[in-house]
Design a protein around this nucleic acid. Sequence first.
DNA 1: TCATAATCGTTTCATTTGCAACGAAGTCAA
DNA 2: TTGACTTCGTTGCAAATGAAACGATTATGA
Lengths: 146, 146
Amino acid sequence: MKSNLPDFDLDRYLPYRLTVIAAQLSARLSKQYKTQFGISIAEWRILLNLGYSGSGSVRDIEKRVSLEKSKVSRGVSRLEAKGYLTKSVDDKDRRLLKLALTETGVALLGELIPIATAYQEQLDEILGEKTQSLQSALDRLAESPD
Amino acid sequence: MKSNLPDFDLDRYLPYRLTVIAAQLSARLSKQYKTQFGISIAEWRILLNLGYSGSGSVRDIEKRVSLEKSKVSRGVSRLEAKGYLTKSVDDKDRRLLKLALTETGVALLGELIPIATAYQEQLDEILGEKTQSLQSALDRLAESPD
DNA sequence: TCATAATCGTTTCATTTGCAACGAAGTCAA
DNA sequence: TTGACTTCGTTGCAAATGAAACGATTATGA
């Protein structure tokens, strides 16, 4: 087809670019967590949140780590089945679940975190002095409306 | 559970951060393209690639726009069903498909591109002087070998 | 030439996803 | 108190996804 289209540079188009690079960066840890620990990214985020908050509801996690509530719900169930956390009803509000890591869960998280930290350090090394400007540019995008 | 975990800042963790922001940026255009034109992101990338390359095989698109070949295959089929492109066998190598936009496909793309361009400009505005440093930081990450 | 290997695009299949609907529990106001 | 409304977590369901297998075609090299 003859085309007389305006120019467009996909490689500089941020929605595309960020999606591709995010997938690239996530892929490595995702594979390692899956093969070595049988844990998905969603599960990792849940563990992490519970590790630091001490306990929380499905909704707390959903808001805090950017996961849909059905994903959180299913992730929590899997983690419970594997013995990494416990579910109980919150006494103050019986609609809520009180989720908390088990000892095994804490131990697992203790293995996952150093791996992520090492990866982040590696990325910071690659970025060098650009680390700060990247983070502050991302701050801007994150704050932007819609 | 008592925890004695090393510190970890998820909000500065790039694999997470980029994933969240990428999803946020993509969501807006994704919705608009879907509701207004019935087009998915994968289809948009396919259209875009064909619009500029003139024609190409499934594999060309796969490599060029970061889509799995099954996604390309299905996207191409949908676009063909909607009349936006044509499939034919490549005469030089009969394993390959020769894909090309129809007139309708070019017209559609002619509507999609200005929307994306306007969005990119809006993002550049939000980023201001940080646009360049963001792009160059992303260059670094993209080049990194994992 | 002929057998083997590689590549292309499609499809199968199990899993994942996102959305909406749901029951249970809590809130609010009349 | 009652009834309408909201919130919580789960689940049903249809669609999307990704990996592997497949047939068809081409490339390679003995």
